[in-house]
Computed example of a mutant assay.
Amino acid sequence: SGSLRGAEYPLAFPAFTWEVRANDRNYHKQFKKRFAFCLSKQKYAGNAIKTAKYNVFTFLPLNLYEQFHRMANIYFVFVILLQTFPAISTLPWYSLLFPLSCLLIIRGVRDLIDDIGRHQSDRNINNRPCEILCGKSFRRQKWCDICVGDIVRLRKDSLVPADMLLLCSSEPSSLCYVETSDIDGETNLKFRQALLVTHQELVREESMAAFDGTVTCEEPNSRMHSFTGTLSWRGQTYPLDSERILLRGCRLRNTDLCYGLVLYAGFDTKIMRNCGKIKRKKTKLDHMMDRLVIIVSGANTSCSASL
């Protein structure tokens, strides 16, 4: 693991805008980014995730909004509105409202049950235990408590909670073996190795608590097998690549202990960037039904106009 001269860094890596300082939560909390109009949020995301679509307040409006993307439901509402005019009414309007309401309720209950499952899954993941360096010792906390810049200790067979720079491990030369089956489906073990300088210097909890290195790297992205950055520490700059990184979702194998510096957390991690947002899905049958409803309603309108 060679070093780069600090003076050459700005010219060699001009696109690096993601800066992580070890053991310095206050530094990362001061940065915000704009995401809508005048609204802003923290630049460095927390490690808690939320994949559920609804909450107590948004379930009813969002679910009705999604259901009325089906042309059949809009058509029935239009027919019900027409039945409120006595001059053209053939049936009581409430006789058509009842079956539509039943359909909306059944689909709403189904969506609610699915989303409750997502909430439960989110809670289980966010509440998984981990060991975070607090002060001069590691304390048992939850995944959702992890922040960018924290140093986390992992034990054998544990899942990696965030994208981390491997600092050292219990293996010779700080090798670390991981299984990536949850990411790419491959069951064969892959090895990662820490920088020689961190392997030699970070040998005790006291030295990790005093570690003040700065990682400057690329912004969060979805490229699973690439990473480029540098570690600056004690006046020296060391290049980093994907062989130094432990990704969220990997499982530690054949390694008793390893220590990592959190670079990306929560939805900034590569695996979560690849998941994307939950989108409203429509089957081919739904698309065909929408077209048929438009054709039928258009034909009825033409017939009414000719009469």
Rank of each mutant, 00 (worst) to 15 (best):
C144K: 15
H28Q: 00
S40L: 04
Q200K: 11
R34K: 15
K43E: 13
V296D: 08
G149C: 13
R291D: 07
W18D: 02
F16G: 04
K190Q: 12
P161L: 05
L39E: 11
L159N: 02
K281E: 11
V203K: 15
M272G: 02
L166V: 08
C102S: 13
T283S: 15
R223H: 11
R291Q: 10
Y44G: 04
F59I: 11
L4V: 10
T187E: 07
R21I: 02
N254Q: 15
M272W: 05
V293P: 04
K282T: 10
C275F: 10
D114G: 13
E8C: 08
E219D: 06
T198G: 00
C38Y: 10
K281V: 12
S170C: 05
W143E: 06
L167W: 00
Q83N: 06
H199G: 00
P86V: 01
L202V: 09
R253L: 03
R110Q: 14
V215M: 06
E179G: 09
V262T: 11
I49Y: 04
L81S: 11
C144G: 05
P10I: 03
F31R: 01
A45E: 15
G2R: 00
I146V: 13
K29E: 14
V160E: 09
S297H: 12
A15Q: 11
L133A: 07
R273D: 03
D163A: 03
R110A: 11
L231N: 01
V77A: 15
P129V: 02
R248L: 05
D182F: 12
F76L: 14
N23T: 04
K142D: 07
S101L: 14
K156H: 08
I74A: 13
N124C: 08
A162H: 00
T58Q: 07
E179S: 11
K50P: 00
H69M: 12
G2K: 01
D184V: 15
R223T: 07
R248G: 04
A265M: 10
M288S: 14
P61E: 11
D150P: 06
E179H: 08
V203Y: 06
P10C: 03
T269I: 06
V20Y: 03
A48N: 10
Y9A: 09
A72M: 15
M289D: 06
G298L: 08
K43C: 01
T228H: 12
T51S: 08
W93Y: 10
I295M: 12
A22D: 01
A72G: 12
K50M: 03
N126V: 09
V296G: 09
M71A: 14
G229K: 06
K284G: 13
R234F: 03
R110I: 12
G135W: 06
D182A: 13
N55E: 07
I106W: 10
G6Y: 07
R192Y: 05
F37C: 09
S232T: 14
P220T: 00
F98N: 08
